[in-house]
Design a protein around this nucleic acid. Structure first.
Length: 261
DNA sequence: ATGCCAACCCGGGGTTGA
């Protein structure tokens, strides 16, 4: 089984790219983030032509997540328990579904803006709620392959950014954010680190500006956190950096995981 | 060449992203 995650930075702007990538990469399950569309506006008919069912969750112009599957899609959950919301409003940042016997969550963790900002506190609280959801979902079915995939907006180690000295006073690399990832790992999840197709670091995001991609000034912030039944079945994992190339690319590349399931 | 920010909504500019 092939499972992937991809922050598309607008499904509307990326639809042609998405369809081309689905046809080429042939994932069985694809977790999407940053749809930037409402649930009912997701182009489900377009991906259905390629054999995929859709479970989407979007509330408007920001955020938005989905799961596409060609191996069935059941038990869909929109949002996580205890979601703190931002400024009294819940955002569309998580959707769970069971596909071909694997339980997956597609997540778009809040950015945080800057340390000390209200959005940064929101990010940490949101991650606490995600942890709670993981405990409930994995505790009830410990033998079922389970994974949280998506844009975590956190680089797990200094090695996961192109130059740590450029990230002083920045989000994505702070100790509290990394601690939140450690808490997820302590609850039984493993960071499934993909291999890069070029260069030494499996970056998944490169800024659009300042030639970041050609210079490989990237970050590994799109992560796959799987339980033992999931991580133990992984046969390969890679970042499809080819999808970051050319006109009309997202600023994130897909992360692809192959499983012996 | 991998190539110098893009997408949203609104109606040119502010907001967001990381």
């Amino acid at each position: 089984m092939r499972i992937a995650t991809w922050n598309v930075n607008s499904i509307g702007a990326r639809l042609d790219r998405l369809k081309g990538w689905l046809a080429a990469a042939q994932p069985d399950v694809l977790c999407l983030q940053e749809l930037k569309c409402a649930t009912e506006a997701f182009p489900a008919d377009q991906v259905a032509e390629l054999g995929y069912e859709t479970a989407a969750y979007g509330l408007g112009r920001w955020n938005g997540v989905a799961v596409l599957s060609r191996v069935g899609i059941t038990d869909v959950r929109r949002g996580i328990d205890g979601d703190p919301g931002y400024e009294d409003a819940e955002e569309a940042r998580a959707i769970g579904a069971t596909c071909g016997g694997v339980r997956v969550w597609s997540v778009y963790v809040p950015n945080g803006r800057e340390p000390g900002h209200a959005h940064y506190q929101y990010k940490l609280h949101w991650l606490e709620a995600l942890h709670g959801t993981v405990l409930v979902e994995t505790g009830g079915a410990p033998q079922r392959p389970f994974a949280v995939l998506g844009d975590f907006n956190i680089a797990p180690t200094d090695d996961d950014v192109w130059d740590i000295s450029r990230f002083a006073e920045s989000t994505h690399v702070t100790e509290p954010e990394r601690k939140a990832l450690a808490v997820l790992r302590d609850s039984g999840l493993t960071d499934v680190v993909p291999r890069p197709l070029k260069y030494d670091h499996p970056y998944t995001y490169w800024d659009y500006r300042a030639l970041a991609f050609p210079k490989n000034r990237g970050m590994r912030i799109d992560l796959v956190y799987g339980n033992q039944p999931f991580a133990g079945a992984v046969s390969d994992a890679y970042v499809d950096r080819e999808e970051r190339k050319g006109k009309g690319a997202s600023d994130h590349a897909p992360v692809v995981v192959d499983l012996d399931l």
